[in-house]
């Protein structure tokens, strides 16, 4: 197999695995964020569902009316940030850019928690997608150069 083909397959598999692991971790932390902040806010009947019969992921709860509704919602978004920020510590490694992919993904899943505000959903989706695209481009470029240097 040619060296260029080796670089292709290694980088492709690595990119897919990194994307899946970071995004599924972000999704899990997002739901855990709902759960913990719901408990903090005194919400009752909290139900965290990772995969239901329709393969959906969500957290249900009944919160007291005096609590602002966005507390457990925005809280879930913020809950993921420390995990994503840890990638920024990988200064000279291509994986540092997983921060942007995770952040973009976190924004796109967080906006689905605000179903009543359609404009915000659309805006958030495009902002998230833009950050994901930026992260993917930088990650892949750096990963290819890195693997080329190592091989």
């Amino acid at each position: 197999m040619r060296k260029i083909q080796k670089i292709f397959f290694i980088a492709l598999i690595f990119t897919i695995l990194l994307n899946i692991s970071v995004c599924s971790s972000a999704l899990l932390l997002h739901e855990l964020g709902h759960f913990f902040l719901g408990v903090q806010a005194g919400c009752k009947n909290i139900k965290l569902v990772l995969i239901d019969s329709e393969l959906g992921t969500y957290t249900e709860m009944n919160c007291p009316k005096e609590q602002p509704f966005y507390f457990p919602l925005l809280g879930a978004f913020i809950f993921v940030l420390p995990f994503l920020s840890s990638f920024l510590l990988l200064k000279n490694f291509p994986e540092k850019n997983l921060f942007f992919i995770g952040l973009g993904f976190n924004i796109t899943i967080a906006i689905t928690d605000f179903p009543s505000i359609a404009f915000l959903q659309l805006l958030g989706f495009f902002i998230g997608l833009g950050i994901i695209l930026y992260g993917e481009i930088v990650l892949i470029d750096k990963l290819l150069s890195f693997i080329r240097g190592v091989k």
Binding site: F8, A11, L12, T15, I16, N19, I20, C23, S24, L27, L50, I51, D52, E54, L55, G56, T57, Y58, I101, F105, T108, I109, I111, T112, D113, P115, S116, A118, Q121, L122, F125, I132, L133, E136, I137, I140, D141, L144
Partner: peptide
């Protein structure tokens, strides 16, 4: 409402993988 409240996990991950593979093909070229 534009997006469903509960979005299947495999759809989200599938979408991310599709984006990653598309950008990978372009950048590798």
């Amino acid at each position: 409402m534009i997006f469903p409240e509960s979005f299947p996990i495999f759809y989200s991950l599938g979408l991310i993988v599709a984006i990653a593979v598309s950008i990978f093909s372009w950048r590798f070229y």
